[in-house]
Simulated assay, not measured.
Amino acid sequence: MRLITVSGPPSSGKTSVIGKTIEALEKKAIELAVIKFDCLSTADELIYEKKGIKTKLGLSGSLCPDHYFVNNIDACFHWGLKENVDILITESAGLCNRCSPHIKGILSVCVIDNLSGCHTPKKIGPMLKFADIVVITKGDIVSQAEREVFAYNVKMVNPKAKILHINGITGQGAAELGRLFLSANDYQNLDDKKLRFTMPAALCSYCLGETMIGKDYHIGNVKNMKL
Rank of each mutant, 00 (worst) to 15 (best):
S60A: 14
L182M: 13
R147A: 07
I22P: 01
I169V: 15
I169F: 15
H165I: 02
I87Q: 09
A151C: 09
S7P: 02
G214L: 11
V85P: 02
I22E: 05
H67L: 04
P126K: 10
V134I: 15
K56P: 00
L190C: 07
L25F: 13
V149T: 08
A184D: 15
S116C: 11
P159M: 13
A29E: 13
K104F: 01
L177P: 00
K50C: 03
G220S: 12
L25E: 08
R98K: 14
S12P: 03
N224D: 10
D113N: 15
C118W: 08
G61K: 04
G168S: 14
S7N: 12
S7F: 02
M1Y: 08
A184I: 01
L208S: 13
N114F: 01
T21Y: 10
G168K: 05
Q172E: 15
Y206L: 00
G80N: 11
T15S: 15
I169D: 13
L57R: 03
K14L: 06
I30S: 04
E176M: 12
L95Q: 08
C99F: 09
K129L: 13
N153F: 08
I89L: 13
H102S: 07
I133Y: 08
V157N: 00
I30Y: 12
D140V: 07
N221G: 01
